[in-house]
């Protein structure tokens, strides 16, 4: 018996995890795909019946879907742009030996380890429109007051800022690892040749860090595009649907209106978008990195 396991350990070791993943991920995904082709609605009480691509046609025609589509991209772009710029700069800044580096790294890591819902609640306190800290800060330094998450115009940037505050640490840590792997002689050569720190950054460090930036950018995209916790906790998609991203839209259709069929088709579309953009980014990365 022992020998049999040893000889076939390859499959014996992988099988439990594989069976679990198939049951818990592949089967549900196939179910979601199947649901998306039905008119399943818990409220009507009827058994779901096959209706082909009707759900997909309905969402592609619906202005609500395109509104959410636009918002999701707006939110994702804002958050990722801030995270990447600040993350790379920060990583370059603290990527040297100085006293207290360990402490600084620990502090930077803190927001990332916290529950997004808790972070959302924290920022609700700062964003409180009448007497919150942010509006006090804004008026003190001479900026106009803002409604933050309670006004339609400012809700997405306000949410993106919280996402930025919480998730930039991940970019910093990964970029620092990328920097540590770069050959030192390039940096030394640049300094010997009389390059200023700014020139070294743009001409040497940034190009060499590009593969890392692509990888972490893609990872961040995948997470931010599907972001749920933070937005749901802070606004539930409001005010007046101004922050209803695709993921929140799918959640509402399923658990507020019980349109499981329609919700499944939205989720399938989200997956296709994420897959397509990830694939395109990988292609682009290979092209840019080769040159």
């Amino acid at each position: 018996m022992n020998d049999w396991i040893s000889d076939h350990y390859k499959w014996v070791f992988v099988a439990p995890a594989l069976i679990f993943m198939v049951l818990m991920i592949v089967v549900p995904i196939v179910m979601t795909l199947a649901f998306s082709l039905t008119d399943w609605n818990l409220l009507t009480g009827r058994a779901p019946s096959f209706n082909g691509l009707a759900n997909y046609i309905e969402i592609l025609k619906s202005p609500d879907f395109w509104h959410s589509f636009g918002i999701t991209f707006y939110y994702t772009f804002l958050a990722i742009a801030m995270e990447l710029v600040a993350g790379v700069l920060l990583a370059v800044l603290i990527n040297k030996d100085f006293r207290g580096k360990g402490v600084v790294k620990t502090i930077i890591l803190l927001p990332y380890m916290m529950a997004p819902v808790a972070v959302g609640m924290m920022w609700m306190l700062f964003y409180e429109p009448t007497s919150g800290f942010m509006n006090w800060l804004f008026t003190t330094i001479g900026l106009p007051r803002s409604g933050f998450t309670s006004a339609r115009g400012s809700v997405i940037p306000s949410l993106a800022f919280v996402e930025f505050w919480q998730m930039t640490p991940m970019v910093v840590i990964v970029c620092m690892a990328g920097l540590a792997a770069l050959p030192e002689d390039c940096m030394e050569a640049a300094v010997v040749d009389g390059a200023t720190p700014i020139q070294t950054f743009f001409r040497v460090k940034l190009p060499m860090l590009l593969p890392t930036i692509f990888s972490i950018g893609l990872l961040r995209f995948v997470d931010v595009f599907k972001s749920f916790d933070l937005i749901y906790a802070m606004t539930k998609g409001g005010p007046a649907n101004a922050s209803r991203t695709l993921n929140i839209y799918a959640y509402e259709e399923a658990f507020s209106y019980y349109k499981f069929g329609l919700s499944s088709s939205i989720l399938t579309v989200v997956f296709i978008i994420v897959l397509a953009i990830s694939f395109a980014t990988m292609k682009l990365k290979n092209k840019v990195v080769e040159v």
Binding site: I25, P28, T32, F35, Y251, S263, L267, F271, L275
Partner: peptide
């Protein structure tokens, strides 16, 4: 690839 899936899409099933 599993990481690309929106968690909602297995939560519903």
């Amino acid at each position: 690839v599993a990481r690309l899936l929106p968690p909602m899409s297995f939560l519903l099933p």
